[in-house]
Each structure stands twice: as C-alpha cells, then as structure tokens.
Design a protein around this nucleic acid. Structure first.
Lengths: 151, 151
DNA sequence: TCCATTCGTCAGTCTATCTGACGATCACTA
DNA sequence: TAGTGATCGTCAGATAGACTGACGAATGGA
C-alpha cells in the first residue's frame, strides 16, 4: 500500500516557493553571520528594505512593511541597541522620531544585497542561466499581478 | 535626491519568492476558513503534508517536518483538540503514539490540495499558462538541486 | 482656540518555534 | 536474562515576532 504523504507525489506551488525561500534565507543570514553580523535576523530585513538613505519615521517604516508600528518599534529597538540604527526627534514634528542607518547599518544593507546577488548567481549555476532568468521574470510578473508593495 | 529604499529599484530573489508565497498563503488559508476550517493555520500544514494515509509517529512527523518533537506535539495537540486528528498508542511500541487524520482531517487535506491547485490555476491565468509551467519547472529543479525534503 | 487626528509607547496576548531534563520503554549484548 | 544505552513522548521554561487596546503628547485645520 502507498503510505507516502500526499505531498511527496506532487508538490504544491506553495512548497515550491517555500523550500527555496528558506534555503535562500539560510544562505543569506548565515553569510551575514559569517561577515560579522550574527545579530541580524530575517525579521530585520523589514527595516533594511524600507528605510532608504535619508531615514524614515517609525510609522512610515511600519506602513511600508505592512505591519503595526508596535511591531516595527520592536525591530527598530533591537537594531538601534546593536548600533545599526540611530534615531533622533523629527525637527519638524515633535511627536515623530526619524530613524536612520548608521555606518554599521549601511554595511549590513550592503552585505545583504551582496549576499542576495551571490545566492541568485548560485541558483543560476545550478539550474542554468536561461532558466534562472526566466524564473526571475515569471516571479516579477506574478508580483506585478499581485500588485504587492515590498511587504 | 533619491531617497527611495534600495529594494524599490531591483527586488532580491528572496522578495520575489516571499511576496507570492505570502499571497498564496492568504488565498489558501482564507479559502480554508471560507470552507469552514478557520482554525487551520499555516503552521498546521507541517502536519498535513507529512502524515500520510496510515498515520505516523509524532517523532516521525517532527523529523519529516524538520522541527523538534516538542514543536510538532504542540501542533498535533491543537489539531487533535479540534477533531482533525486522533491518536492512539502504538501496539508495537509502548513508548510511541500513532497520530492519524480523522474524516474531518481528511476533508481539510483535500481542501488544502484543492485550494492550492486553484491558486496555481489563477497564477497561470495571470502570467500565462506557458510561463506558469516554466515557473513550476524552474522551481522544481531548484528544489531538486537543494536536495530538500518537504521541510 | 478647540478638537480630531497622528505619532510613538506601554501593557498584555498569542503563535510558533527552541533547549534542557526526565520517566518509560525498547533492543541489544555480555 | 539482566543490564544498559538509545529512543519516545512530555514537562517546564525561554524567545522571537507578530497582534490588539489604551493612552499622553503634539499637530494642524476649522
């Protein structure tokens, strides 16, 4: 009798996205740790992805990342404590706080982009340059169709 | 000056996997809730994906899912309480417990696969049948190259 | 000048993972 | 066959990362 779990027969598209995604995360955050930033966890990417060179308000970061300001504050506090961010009161709005990358934070962002590019190059090596390019284009079109922000 | 966050210029492959994955999850688990199973959360898929028609030991489930037995026990307990699983002592091993899907659990698994297939069909509608097929093949090859289990 | 809105924080909750320790049981071997 | 080391599942506790609700301070428009 066939007692294999159903998903061994044909993987769902969800699994086909999840498994590479998790592998990619291990590569990128492992690489970040190897480069001297073991404190950076996947959740922190929400900050690095959305902050921009001139910094941003906490609320703006939260909105761009699609999460509550409380959750974003939790991430920002950790990064600030580790010296990746600095924050200062907004001179134009006494309620607000402008969060910015420090030089150390800049290096993390750079490493993050480097490691992502390297990982993508390794994918191209494994499945072929043409196929990898098609994969990227298909995903870009899908994301476009979803109409997603950067999450 | 250009103050856009870096990731608005070119998305990393990670983001290109994550955004569709999250969209897919919303569709699938939203659909599951609409079909009368609002208690099923994404983490539970680790159980449904790996259990198989004859059931499995807790430890086997944990190992297949790549998590600790304590974590798997947490998921299994929730599903058992909700009537999706039943568990019985293993007649061949006094230490072990065999976990199995109930009829209700079978319906969830069926719905999960249905909804995944529907979501995949919608992707094909949006980005084109050919491109969707290429996307699936590229991802399958990538997963193969990783040598991943089903996670 | 008032009042509704917005900004960030405090407090508490929940989910989903982890580690460490442990009693019960099994399976092998001396 | 008795002893012992490995394995099964559970207990207890910690942590990350998200949430909701409430709130004081500051803003800005009527």
């Amino acid at each position: 009798m066939d007692n294999r779990p159903v998903t061994e027969r044909r993987r769902t598209l969800g699994a086909l996205l999840r498994l590479p995604y998790e592998a990619l995360q291990r590569e990128v955050y492992g690489g970040l740790a190897a480069r001297g930033f073991p404190e950076i966890r996947p959740a922190h990417s929400a900050v690095f992805r959305h902050i921009g060179p001139d910094g941003a308000r906490l609320t703006a970061l939260a909105e761009r990342a699609g999460m509550t300001k409380q959750s974003m504050a939790y991430l920002v506090d950790g990064l600030e404590e580790a010296g990746h961010l600095r924050s200062a009161p907004d001179p134009n709005d006494g309620r607000a706080r402008i969060v910015q990358l420090t030089a150390k934070g800049d290096r993390v962002l750079e490493a993050l982009l480097d490691l992502s590019a390297e990982a993508e190059a390794r994918v191209a090596d494994r499945i072929g340059k043409r196929r990898a390019a098609k994969l990227r284009r298909a995903l870009e079109e899908w994301v476009e169709a979803i109409g997603a922000g950067t999450g």
